Computed example of a mutant assay.
Amino acid sequence: MTGAEFVPLSLPPLLIGICAAVACALPGNFLLLRKQALIGDAISHVVLPGIVIAFLFTGSVSAWPMMVGAALASVFAVVLIEAVRRLGRIEPGAAMGLTFTTMFAGGVLLLEQSDTSTVHLDVEHALYGNLESLIWLDAVGWQSLADPAALATLPVELPRIALTLMAVIVFTWLFWRLLVLSTFDDSFALTLGLHTGWISLALVVVAAVAAVAAFDAVGSIIVIAMFICPPASARLMTNRLEVQIAWSVVFAVISAVLGYVLAGYGPLWLGSDNAVSAAGMIATVSGVILASTALFAPCRKRAGAPRH
Rank of each mutant, 00 (worst) to 15 (best):
residue 156 V to A: 07
residue 156 V to M: 08
residue 156 V to Q: 09
residue 156 V to Y: 03
residue 156 V to K: 07
residue 157 E to S: 04
residue 157 E to Q: 13
residue 159 P to H: 06
residue 159 P to T: 10
residue 159 P to W: 01
residue 159 P to G: 06
residue 160 R to K: 10
residue 160 R to Q: 14
residue 160 R to P: 02
residue 161 I to K: 05
residue 161 I to P: 02
residue 162 A to H: 08
residue 162 A to C: 02
residue 163 L to I: 15
residue 163 L to C: 09
residue 163 L to Y: 15
residue 163 L to Q: 12
residue 163 L to W: 15
residue 164 T to M: 01
residue 165 L to Q: 00
residue 165 L to G: 03
residue 166 M to D: 00
residue 166 M to T: 07
residue 166 M to K: 02
residue 166 M to R: 01
residue 166 M to V: 13
residue 167 A to Y: 07
residue 167 A to L: 15
residue 167 A to V: 09
residue 168 V to N: 04
residue 168 V to Y: 13
residue 168 V to G: 04
residue 168 V to L: 08
residue 169 I to H: 08
residue 169 I to R: 05
residue 169 I to Y: 09
residue 170 V to M: 09
residue 170 V to E: 00
residue 171 F to G: 00
residue 172 T to R: 07
residue 172 T to P: 02
residue 172 T to N: 14
residue 173 W to R: 12
residue 173 W to Q: 03
residue 173 W to C: 01
residue 173 W to P: 05
residue 173 W to T: 03
residue 173 W to K: 06
residue 173 W to M: 10
residue 174 L to E: 07
residue 174 L to I: 15
residue 174 L to H: 06
residue 174 L to T: 11
residue 175 F to Y: 09
residue 175 F to R: 12
residue 175 F to K: 09
residue 175 F to D: 04
residue 175 F to N: 05
residue 175 F to V: 01
residue 175 F to E: 00
residue 176 W to A: 08
residue 176 W to S: 05
residue 177 R to Q: 03
residue 178 L to C: 04
residue 178 L to F: 11
residue 179 L to D: 01
residue 180 V to S: 03
residue 180 V to D: 08
residue 180 V to H: 06
residue 180 V to L: 13
residue 180 V to T: 01
residue 180 V to K: 14
residue 180 V to A: 10
residue 181 L to H: 09
residue 181 L to K: 15
residue 181 L to D: 06
residue 182 S to P: 06
residue 182 S to G: 10
residue 182 S to R: 11
residue 183 T to I: 10
residue 183 T to E: 10
residue 184 F to G: 03
residue 184 F to H: 13
residue 184 F to L: 12
residue 184 F to A: 07
residue 185 D to A: 14
residue 185 D to T: 11
residue 186 D to A: 13
residue 186 D to M: 10
residue 187 S to E: 11
residue 187 S to N: 12
residue 187 S to V: 12
residue 187 S to K: 13
residue 187 S to G: 11
residue 188 F to P: 08
residue 188 F to D: 04
residue 189 A to S: 14
residue 189 A to T: 01
residue 189 A to M: 13
residue 189 A to W: 08
residue 190 L to G: 11
residue 191 T to Y: 12
residue 191 T to W: 14
residue 191 T to P: 04
residue 192 L to Y: 03
residue 193 G to P: 10
residue 193 G to E: 11
residue 193 G to H: 11
